[in-house]
Structure formats: C-alpha cells, structure tokens
Design a protein around this nucleic acid. Structure first.
Length: 723
RNA sequence: GGGCGGGUGGUGAAAUGGUAGACACGCCAGUUUUAGGAACUGGUGCCGCAAGGCAUGGAGGUUCAAGUCCUCUCCCGCCCACCA
C-alpha cells in the first residue's frame, strides 16, 4: 500500500528541519549577489491572523525562494509593528499591560505564520516596541532635531469634549468621536512637527527613478500636490492663484471663514483698478495657499456658484493677463509638515527634556532609550495630555545640560515612526552601537522588491522615503531611495464579498485551513484563487482543487522510472517541458501566480496521463512547484533519494530552441469564421500550406466553387481566407 | 469633482490583434461489489434533433481577423477630495 499524502505530518517535520538547517538565513556577506525582499511587517492585533494576512507573505515567499534557487543571497525578514491604538484601547479597557498583550499577540502571529512554511529569516525578527529597537527610533528623532527638521508648533488637534481625550484622525468618524459619537472639537496644542515639506521636491522628482505602479506614483504626486501659481496683492490681502492670467475676471475676494458672509470691506483689483468686495466663505481652505483667493466666476465653478448665490458680479469676457504681471511666481504644495506628537501612552517617548533655563534639551545619546514607564492608568489625562504626564516620578527629571529641575516631554511618537525605518534595521538588527552599520546597509540596501497594501501607498511610503532621504543626506544610508520596486496585493474578502472583521464574525482563521487541508494547499489556493493585485472573496469550496492537485503530484512518485523522459520521446513533450519552465519563471516575476499554478497543473495532468513518469521530469516539476508548496516537494525530493534540500537546487532554465513544437494545428478562417483546422509541420512553407488548405474538402465546401480574394497565412497562428 | 481599477459561463478566472472560456470550483452521468468524498472516468457557454447560429455591459468604427485598438454610452468598485 503506497504511503498516503499526510500534510500535517510532513509539514511539521520539514518546518523543524529547516529551522535546524538554517537554509533561509541571510548572510551579511556572501560571494552571491544579494536580494532583499520585503513585506510590510504586521501589526499583531488581538484577533490573530486571518487568511488575508499571508497572501502577500506567500507571494513574496515564492519570489524569495526562486531568487535563492537562482543563486541569490536572499534577505526576507519579518517583525512586528506593535505600537498602536488597538492595543492601547485594549489596555484602557482591561488594565492589562500593553507589553504583555503585545507579547501574547505576536506569539500567536509568529506561531500562525510559521505554520505556513514561509521562508522568513526568523533570526532577524524585530519589534518596534522593544526598547532595543525604539532606542534608535528616538535617536533618529534627535537627528531630525539636530538638523532643524523637528520643531514645535501650535496645532489644532481633534478633541473629544466628553471623553476628554485627543483623538487620532483615524478615530474621528464623520466628525464625531469613534467611541461615544460626540462631535469632535479642535483644540490648540503645541505639537512636535517633522519638516517633510523640505523634501517635497525630491520626494516628487525621485519618483521617476523607482519602479512603482503608475497609480502609486500618481497618488504620491497628488498628495505632494505641487502647483505653480502667483501671489497677488489686492491692497493688504494677498491671494494665491494658479491662474493669474484670469485676474481681469476677478470680481470679488474670498477669505477662509466659518460661514459665508460679506466682511464689509472692499479692496482694489490691481488689474482693473476696480473696488471689489471681500467675502468670507467655508469653501476656501485656511491652510492652503494664503487662505485667500480671488474669485473668477467665469472661470471657476465654485466661484460661479458663490457669485450666483450672493448676486455678485460676473465678468464673462475679460482680457487675459501675463503670468507675472500683477504678482510674483511661487510654488505651493498640498503636502503639510508631519504632526509627530501623540498624547498617547503606547508609543515611543519623544526623547526631550524641557528645562526652564535651557529650554528644549535633547536627551543625550548615552541615556537612550527613554524607557516607556509602567503606569496604572492608560487613559489620557483630563487636559488631553498623554498618561505619561500623570506619572510625576517619571516626568520630573533633571536637565542634562544644567542639572537643574526639568520636565520630560510626555508626548509619544505616532504609529508611523517605527515603520519609517524598519527596513534599515533588518540589515543589522542586533547592532547596539548604531541603528545599522553602513557596511551592512551598503550590502543590502536598497530593498529590491517591497510589497504591501494599497492603503499604505501614500503615507507610509512617503514617510519612509522621507526618513531614508534625510539619512542619505547625513551619509548614514547608501541610497537616496529605499525601495527599488513596489507592488501591492489585493485584499481577501469574506465569502459574501465584505471585508473580514471580527465584528462581522466573518473572519477565516488560517489555523483551521491548515488543519483540514494543509499549509501547502492553503498557499496554493491563495495564489491560484485570482490575480494577486485584485481583491477577491474567500471560497472554502474551492480549496479542494489545489488539494486534489497536490494529491496527484504525490501519486506520481509511484509511477517513476529511470528511463526515457517525456522530453526525449518527441517534440511535443520537449516543448511542454520548456514551455512550462518558461511560463512559470516569467509568471513568478510578474506576480502572475494564478497562471503559474495552472501551468503546473497542466504539466502535472500531462505527466499523470503517461503510463510511467521519468524521474527527470518529475524532478523538474517538483523544483518548479517548490516555491509554491515547499513541504510536499521537500518530502518527495527526499523520497526520491536526495540528501540535500530541494530549496537549495538550481532553478531550471528553459531552452528557447526547444519551445517550439514540430507540429502545430492552425485554424482556418473563412470570412472571419473558423471552419476547419490543419496540422502543419515546422518546415512547411507558406505556399505549401496555402495549397494544402485550398485543396481541403471542407474548405472547398465553404468556398462553393468561388475563387478566394485573399489568403492570409499568419505563420504558426491562423490561415484567413477572404471570399 | 479628480484619479485609478473593473464589467467575459452557475462561480473564481484565462487569452503578445489570430480557434473566447485555458486552469479550477460547482453541476450532470457513470465507476470503485455498501456508505462517504478531501477518489476515479466522461460530460458541461447559450439556442438547436441536426446543419448551423448566437455569445466577452450597450451602440458604432478600424481590420482578413477585436474581449483586446478607436469614438460614444451605461453600470460597479476603490482611493483622494471645496487644494483656487
């Protein structure tokens, strides 16, 4: 009785074996060329992993595994982006220490991810909430401060008057507090800011040097929002416009305001010399341009609407002006500086001390990290300050400069901080002298392929590019851009097509799938279910397809013989082998995982139809399948008698000469409709084919004795007859 | 309003301008001396007994040939959004 396919047994066995043999370890120096593959590190939420999480991990795993087999020294790391609101809110609710919650959650995530056989280098695991990590996040902040790119400014924050806490933008839903529904107010507060706008131009221009999807570049460009316009003075009111040439049509001025009303003032239009009224309106943004515009109703729809509503003059035919006749050329951006303070507990403490005598004093490097102290209450204070402000023994300190009494900064950093540089830390994760050594960074950077969600293509990507560029200017990192290539994956939705969420109760846990079908089946299904970039609904029924496929592969081992291979027997077989290698190789590179899997299925089905299967071809199949289904292929590789891992084998190369079949069936179209087919061989000339086609009885029938007007022979494709 | 995707069988989907529906799910019939399916074999776009005809949201166009290119139009999804 042949041994049955038992995924549970072989998957556990090989996962342990790989951990021992260290075959997925990245080496910091190697004769091989390097390859840095990256996924966005997850936030270890209390809900555990759902089947959507691994989709990008599997996709990039396939690429990482193929690169290894192609002779690259591959870095494919993972860690935890563990600071953040859900954990903090959970702590507020339960009083449980977020450190413990984070530990539990990341332990669960790790166990779940490890059960999928993804070739992460677990020895480089990082955690943004680990003091050994956030020491360097703090250090990097001090660099920004040192170079004048971190500064304090009064900013309006979202404030819930009922809960008396500051809210992150994400917690404001339709202008109201997410948890109590009270309308959110704006409250002025001193905030730390990072001057990302200083890098606006380079963040924009350097998009031309990277391989991102065009829509991601467009989103980044729109977010930066560079526009060229002019500042024009209407007496003492300065306005910004991108169309200074329309100034002769400007019939009133609008300044930003809470309600639509006439201010009672008039100013002079410098072009027409006419007195025009100054209005206030909601539709003008206070934080863009100068917060004031010249209204040209004939040219701008919103101006027109406003003019009609309040019966303001409209001039339809006006003389165009020159660009700089009445003002000076200026470049404006939509991009704002980054508000870097949070009045929250679960984040990196900002390493600053406030001294009455010395002012803002950075915590000296030797005193880093500034540890997040333990507290009893995680709730922000009544005044909207971080809970850290309530811990006097922590907040009261001495000034590092003068030794006098001083207070610590009690704001923490936003969630984005740790993720803005984590890809650098992976290159040298244990370094306690530097955030990462230049030697290691020079070896590994830039990231060769970075895959993540569409929801991060604006902020996270922009922020991390900004940090990297800043560090590049300080000569602390070797490349101006951190990521050479960026791709995105689609979400996996619940069976009904809705987003998976705990509250809807439609979350599918991968543990259950691994238990029932095995990790290899789950991996294969997630790759096969549809195009990688596209959102797609989970379908439990369809999992049996990939499982049956693996069963078929498993059974092939009982038909092995050491004889003539399929590709030795005829051109058809030869072509199939080489076509399969080509298609699978190219599909992996272009993330066409679904069609790569179907190609492997076709190859397997063909082998399965043979009485006997040559070991040579079976091994080709296993090697091509190995990145997708690492456990079953490793087991079969061992059964075939190999002592080394299949994952260390050479990726096969196809021979372009051997891809073409010697015989091909051409379709014959008559007036655009397929009426017959003809099998021709490699060497046949067009004329020979033409003669053969016209002699066919089927063709004669459709021609009905008429002479064809044209006969078009498209080599290796089709024959088209026009009557 | 802007930007980007999409619309192909019962379902997920394939298809350098060249035989639309590969591959898979489901379904149908049969096989495996009972049952079961995470087993096997065959069938399966629609209409038609057949010959054949019709089919890629809709309407036109270019072409020997269009899911694919062009024009118009309808619908769906996502992201951004009074950014002058």
């Amino acid at each position: 009785m042949a041994k049955e396919y038992n995924p549970k047994e072989i998957e556990g066995k090989w996962q342990k074996e790989w951990e021992k043999s260290l075959i997925y370890r990245a080496l910091d120096s190697s004769k091989k060329p390097k390859y840095y593959a990256l996924i966005e590190f997850p936030y270890p939420s209390g809900d555990g992993l759902h089947v959507g999480h691994p989709r990008p991990y599997i996709g990039i795993d396939i690429i990482a595994r193929k690169k290894r087999m192609e002779g690259f020294n591959v870095l494919y790391p993972i860690g935890w982006d563990a600071f953040g609101l859900p954990t903090e809110n959970y702590a507020i609710k339960t009083g449980k220490d977020p450190r413990i919650v984070t530990k539990e959650n990341s332990d669960t995530f790790r166990r779940q991810i490890q059960s999928l056989g993804i070739s992460f280098d677990w020895s480089r695991e990082i955690n943004t909430t680990d003091p050994k990590y956030y020491k360097w996040t703090q250090w990097l902040f001090l660099k920004f401060l040192e170079k004048g790119l971190a500064y304090k400014a009064k900013m309006a924050i979202n404030w819930c008057p009922k809960d008396k806490i500051g809210l992150a933008n994400e917690e404001v839903v339709d202008g109201a507090c997410e948890r109590c529904g009270t309308p959110v107010e704006q409250k002025e507060k001193e905030q730390w800011m990072l001057a990302i706008t200083k890098y606006a131009d380079r963040l924009l221009d350097d998009l031309d040097t990277v391989d991102y999807p065009e829509r991601v570049k467009t989103q980044q460009r729109n977010w930066i929002g560079k526009s060229e316009g002019a500042l024009i003075k209407f007496d003492d009111i300065e306005i910004f416009t991108t169309r200074p040439d329309t100034i002769f049509g400007a019939t009133f001025i609008v300044i930003s305001g809470k309600e639509d009303r006439f201010t009672g003032r008039y100013v002079t239009n410098p072009a027409t010399k006419e007195k025009i009224p100054v209005w206030e309106a909601e539709y003008v943004m206070s934080d863009y341009g100068t917060g004031a515009i010249m209204a040209v109703p004939a040219h701008d729809e919103r101006d027109m609407e406003f003019a009609k509503k309040f019966s303001l003059p409209i001039v339809e035919n006006y003389t165009p002006a020159g660009f700089e006749d009445y003002g000076k050329k200026v470049i404006k951006y939509k991009l704002r500086d980054w508000v870097f303070s949070r009045q929250r507990y679960w984040g990196e403490p900002i390493p600053i001390v406030h001294c009455d005598k010395c002012g803002v004093v950075p915590v000296p490097e030797k005193d880093l990290p500034v540890l997040l102290p333990e507290v009893k209450n995680y709730q922000p204070t009544d005044t909207g300050e971080s809970p850290l402000a309530a811990i006097e023994e922590w907040a009261n300190t001495t000034c590092p400069k003068c030794g006098g009494k001083a207070k610590r900064e009690t704001d923490t950093m936003p969630n984005w901080a740790g993720s803005s540089w984590y890809f650098l830390r992976y290159c040298d994760h244990e370094n306690d002298k530097e955030f990462a050594s230049m030697d290691n960074l020079k070896y590994w950077m830039p990231v060769d392929w970075y895959n993540g969600g569409m929801e991060h293509t604006v902020l996270h990507l922009l922020y991390s590019r900004f940090w990297n560029k800043f560090l590049y200017d300080l000569k602390l990192v070797p490349t101006s851009e951190p990521y050479k290539k960026r791709t995105s994956h689609g979400l996996i939705l619940a069976e009904g097509g809705e987003k998976m969420s705990k509250s809807k109760g439609n979350v599918v846990n991968p543990d259950a799938i691994v238990e029932r079908f095995g990790a290899d089946t789950l991996r294969l299904y997630e790759m096969f279910m549809g195009p990688f970039e596209q959102a797609i609904a989970w379908n439990e029924e369809s999992l049996v397809g990939p499982r049956r496929f693996l069963e078929r592969v498993w059974k092939l081992k009982d038909k092995i013989y050491q004889g003539k291979a399929l590709e030795d027997t005829d051109y058809q077989g030869l072509a199939l082998v080489h076509q399969t290698i080509k298609k699978v190789s190219l599909d992996i590179e272009s993330m066409g995982f679904n069609t790569a899997v179907s190609t492997l299925m076709i190859f397997t089905n063909t082998l399965d139809k043979q009485e006997k299967v040559s070991q040579k071809e079976f091994e080709t199949l296993l090697i091509l399948l190995a990145p997708f289904a690492p456990h079953i292929t490793e087991e079969l590789w061992e059964i075939l008698g190999h002592k080394d891992s299949i994952h260390l084998q050479k990726w096969p190369v196809y021979d372009p000469q051997k891809i073409e079949k010697d015989e091909i069936t051409l379709a014959i179209q008559i007036d655009g409709k397929v009426r017959a087919s003809l099998t021709v061989s490699r060497g046949q000339s067009e004329d020979e084919i033409k003669t053969a086609v016209l002699a066919m009885s089927e063709v004669k029938k459709w021609l009905g004795g008429k002479e064809p007007k044209r006969v078009i022979v498209v080599p290796r494709k089709i024959i088209s007859i026009v009557t």
